[in-house]
Design a protein around this nucleic acid. Structure first.
Length: 169
DNA sequence: GCCAACGTTGGC
DNA sequence: GCCAACGTTGGC
């Protein structure tokens, strides 16, 4: 594109950008939801799968993710917010992996079990089901809303999150 | 704890 | 560039 048509450098991306929705998995024995609540924030490291990594890289600050307990529990337990977009994974120096920082946004009033997710025709296309080994998957807006219905938190707009937003260190 | 699924790696 | 072996994930 010719320079002359280039937009005059947008003054910081509009924070009004529509958030995307995701689902991240963790084995509760490795890093549980309660632990994240205690920590207040964490670096989501250790992802060693290209597709999962690409999903991490597609996350924007402010995006929301379901937090899923794999292996034990097998249920959605809460929602986290992306508080820092992707940056190189310091646990894999020299390698091309990424992390994001997340903070707890709110717990689900009712956890949503894998069985319930599988039962719902509305969720048949969920990436977590179709790509069940992926630790970071996409969630559509429709799936997001539907799952909040199951979690009995449907009245809660995804914007009510007074999470501290100190980016950086 | 076992096993199926599947992404990744490495040999040819 | 294909494909078999391997490793890891995650459900059961």
């Amino acid at each position: 594109m010719p320079k002359t048509t280039r937009a005059p450098k947008k003054p910081a991306a509009p924070p009004a950008a529509v958030p995307s929705y995701w689902l991240i998995k963790s084995e509760p024995t490795v890093y549980a939801w309660t632990r994240l609540q205690q920590d207040g924030r964490t670096m989501w490291d250790g992802v060693r799968n290209f597709e999962a990594r690409n999903n991490l890289r597609a996350m924007k600050e402010g995006d929301l993710c379901f937090f899923y307990h794999s292996n034990e529990g097998k249920e959605l337990v809460g929602v986290v917010k992306v508080v820092r977009a992707a940056y190189p994974d310091p646990t894999a120096p020299g390698e091309d992996w990424s992390v994001v920082d997340v903070a707890p946004a709110y717990p689900l009033k009712k956890t949503v079990g894998l069985d319930a997710i599988k039962e719902a025709p509305e969720l048949a296309e969920m990436q977590m089901l179709t790509r069940n080994r992926l630790s970071v998957t996409r969630v559509t807006a429709a799936q997001w809303t539907f799952l909040h219905g199951l979690a009995a938190t449907s009245g809660r707009p995804p914007k009510a999150k007074p999470v501290a937003e100190k980016v950086g260190k």
